[in-house]
Structure formats: structure tokens, C-alpha cells
């Protein structure tokens, strides 16, 4: 599903070059649940962003579902994302001016799906928020917002689900609920799941754990 080869990511910080990822090579098979762990600043979220095409590597190649994404332009990347993957952010990133149901409906409306809102309400029901569709994000708790984000991420039945610290802003009890929900949704759809976390307990649910340190993979590259 994912094929990463010799990916290097360098940024400039205060005029000095900073290497975030240093020759990362990684394969993730279709249907696999892969956890990327590591300390803060190890490059976990950067790697996930590169897989989603949110950023471009300084060197190396990334192929997702057979598509080499490093050479795609912005619009092609947007099309790639809506056809291939769903993304869950640590801080939910719901659109504040839209209700919960409208937030979930956005990916469906972008592709022109019929009955987007009613399908969105169904997805909210799947995450236990069937009665909260008319609420705005500000009226929802952190856990509820993350459940809305999960419903939005799986709205188009993507083959790949990327989750960046999905429980990072939640208390431990709510975090457990969210991760169970994430794994259940992933199992039900049979999609590939790559999640970034520094929580060892959360990582233990994965089929494979990849450890990153200072931009290098310490184990579990393939």
C-alpha cells in the first residue's frame, strides 16, 4: 500500500539546515495496522504528512496505492487524497462554521455524492453521535469532536487511514474509546491504518510498530 524509499526531509531553521527525516525507507502492506512511535521531534508527524502529500520530501520517493506522489502538483495531490486516504488530526480540525453533520458531509459533497448529508448523519450514528449532527464543533467535547473527525475521515471509504496522534488531546479514558472506535472502523472497512503516537499502549494495538528517532527508523522498516 505504501512504499517509501530513502526519504529525506530538510528544513531551514534560523538560517541553518535542519534534517527532520534522514533516509527513511518503509513499506506498509494493504490492510496492515502500523503504528509509528518515537519521542517528540523524531519526525513522526512529518512522515505522516509526506505520506498524505501534505508536504514534499527533499529527496526520496513515496508511492501510495501505486501512485508516486512526490511529482504531483497541488490539484493532483488533492485528487489523490480524496480518492485514496482519510486523515485524522490530533487537534480534530473541524470547520468551525459547519455543523457536525456538515463537517462529515464535506468530503462527500466534494465528490458530488448524492444524499451527502443523510449519509453523513448515518456515519455520525456509527460513531455514536447520531443525535448531535446539528451541533457546531464548539458545542462538542474534545472526544466528540474527534469522533466527528473520524466519521469525516472514513466518509469516502478510503483504502488508507492516517491518524496523527488521534488521542493526543484527549484524557486517557476518552483516548481509549477513540482508539477502539478507530480500530473498529478500520477493521470494518478493511483499510490500511497508519497511526502516529508516542503512547506505547496505543501502539500495542497495531500489527507492527515502527520506531523513529532523530529522523531515522530504528526498527520495523518492513
Amino acid at each position: 500500500m505504501i512504499r517509501i524509499r530513502d526519504v529525506v526531509m530538510r528544513l531551514s531553521s534560523g538560517g541553518r539546515p535542519l534534517t527532520i527525516l534522514d533516509g527513511v525507507t518503509l513499506d506498509v502492506a494493504a490492510g496492515e495496522v502500523c503504528a509509528i512511535t518515537g519521542p517528540s521531534g523524531s519526525g513522526k508527524s512529518t512522515l505522516l504528512g509526506l505520506i498524505a502529500g501534505l508536504d514534499r520530501p527533499s529527496a526520496g520517493s513515496i508511492a501510495v496505492a501505486g501512485v508516486e506522489i512526490t511529482g504531483l502538483d497541488e490539484d493532483a495531490l488533492a485528487r489523490f487524497r480524496r480518492e485514496t486516504l482519510g486523515y485524522v488530526f490530533q487537534s480534530y480540525h473541524l470547520i468551525p462554521t459547519l455543523t457536525a453533520a456538515e463537517n462529515v458531509a464535506v468530503p462527500l459533497e466534494i465528490v458530488g455524492a448524492p444524499d451527502a448529508l443523510s449519509r453523513a448523519r448515518g456515519l455520525l450514528g456509527d460513531v455514536g453521535l447520531g443525535e448531535r449532527g446539528h451541533h457546531y464543533p464548539v458545542q462538542l467535547s474534545g472526544g466528540e469532536q474527534q469522533r466527528v473527525a473520524l466519521a469525516r475521515a472514513v466518509a469516502l471509504d478510503p483504502g488508507l487511514l492516517l491518524a496523527d496522534e488521534p488521542t493526543g488531546n484527549l484524557d486517557s479514558a476518552t483516548g481509549v474509546q477513540i482508539i477502539q472506535l478507530l480500530l473498529a472502523l478500520n477493521r470494518r472497512r478493511g483499510s490500511t491504518l497508519v497511526l502516529v503516537t508516542h503512547d506505547e499502549a496505543l501502539a500495542s494495538h497495531a500489527d507492527r510498530v515502527v520506531k523513529l528517532h532523530d529522523g531515522r527508523i530504528l526498527n520495523g522498516a518492513a
Binding site: 497541488e74 490539484d75 488533492a78
Partner: peptide, 16 residues
């Protein structure tokens, strides 16, 4: 800008 970034992440093209 955040909303625009979210929409792009969800697959909305620049023309849309």
C-alpha cells in the same frame, strides 16, 4: 487559512 487547509486536505482543488 485553516479552513482552506482542511478543505485541501479533504481533497478540494484550488479551483473549487
Amino acid at each position: 487559512l485553516v479552513t482552506i487547509a482542511i478543505l485541501k486536505c479533504l481533497g478540494a482543488g484550488s479551483r473549487v
